[in-house]
Computed example of a mutant assay.
Amino acid sequence: MGNLGLKPRCGLVLADFEGARQLQLAGHARAHFGVDADIDQTGGTGRWIEFQVHSWRSTPLNLTQRCRLLEASPYNPLVRGVASAAFDGPPRSLVPR
């Protein structure tokens, strides 16, 4: 997160392993430390990462193996208030088929 203070330009890739697609996001991010928020909102870290999307594209995911969902990871909190069809929940634990 310290790198975001020096160079805020960054990207995210959200992979849909079952659908063999990926959503690529490019933009700028800013780290907020010492956030006074409910533990459910920051996972107890007191930190936020604000990400401003400047461009996006959806492309096929180049995989040599197909994967299937085993179960949702118990270490990722549920995401609430996300209004996007491109994201349908927290990251998932996947294994090759």
Rank of each mutant, 00 (worst) to 15 (best):
M1T: 02
G5W: 06
G5Q: 12
G5V: 00
K7F: 08
P8Y: 01
L12F: 15
L12K: 15
V13G: 01
V13A: 10
V13S: 10
D16K: 09
G19L: 15
A20Q: 12
Q22H: 07
Q24E: 06
Q24K: 09
A26I: 06
A29E: 03
H32C: 12
H32I: 10
V35A: 14
D36N: 11
D36Y: 03
A37D: 13
A37S: 14
I39K: 09
D40G: 02
D40Y: 02
D40K: 04
G44H: 01
G44M: 11
G44T: 07
G46L: 07
R47Y: 01
R47C: 15
W48V: 00
W48M: 11
I49A: 04
I49L: 13
I49E: 01
E50L: 07
F51W: 03
Q52L: 14
Q52Y: 09
Q52R: 15
V53R: 00
V53L: 07
S55L: 03
W56E: 10
R57G: 05
S58T: 10
S58L: 14
S58K: 14
S58C: 08
L61R: 07
L61I: 04
N62V: 04
N62G: 02
L63W: 01
T64A: 05
T64M: 02
Q65P: 01
R66Q: 13
R66T: 11
C67G: 00
R68C: 07
L70C: 08
A72Q: 02
A72V: 00
Y75S: 08
P77H: 09
P77W: 05
L78W: 03
V79R: 04
V79N: 08
R80D: 14
V82T: 10
A83E: 12
A83F: 08
S84T: 08
A86G: 02
G89Y: 01
P90H: 01
P91Q: 05
R92D: 06
S93K: 12
S93Q: 15
L94K: 02
V95W: 05
